[in-house]
Amino acid sequence: MSLILLFLDELKGFAKSKVMIVLWFGLPILSFLIQFINPAELEGMPISFLVSLVVSSIGGTLSVIMLSTSIVNEKNRHVYELFLVRPVRRSSILIAKYLAVYLCLVIAISISLTVGLIFDAFTGDLIENYLDITFESLITGVSSMSITCSIGIFIGVLISSVPVAAILSVYLGSQLSSIIILPTFFIPDLNTELLALTLGISLTIIMMGMNILLFNRKQF
């Protein structure tokens, strides 16, 4: 019960603090800007494919930073005390945060991609070959974002300084986004989508379990 309440509360927080607007409009705008700033380099590349590349490269960093800094900030301001003196599980606070940030990012990606696909359909750039790579890139991006979200929580729980958490997030966010595709470099015949999904789900569960253990031991 408290998990659903906290999840909806987090979403409301994102909406009220304008995080959602920045994300949902920012990502598609960024993709279009890249397309129009570098038209020569990206010639022939559908915007929907470009969106999937942008998501894969910055989605992970965004999710780590959003989660780590908000948790550190709330910890330092003793925000959780007011929750924990009520019948609220500590794990619910972390899971609600994870789900809210992940959902916000997935929606941002969906909006960007839909806009990109519509744009490509109008301009005639919608090429079947690119659609497959776009899909593959998206699955990888969304899966790695799930892992980076849980790493964001890990940093947030462990670190007590916002700048340090932000710097670590930038360092780790972009690096860890690529972890998910590492095995494909060594084993060429691997199904990339399936591998990304499997690694994404299993590593997220392991990380979240560790985060909850650490958070339960934390003294407020």
Partner: peptide, 18 residues
């Protein structure tokens, strides 16, 4: 015990968007 006790903390804050 959660139902019996009301707690006014010394430092705790609310999220500012509320």
């Amino acid at each position: 015990m959660h139902k019996l006790i009301g707690y006014h903390p010394q430092e705790a804050n609310f999220q500012e968007w509320r």
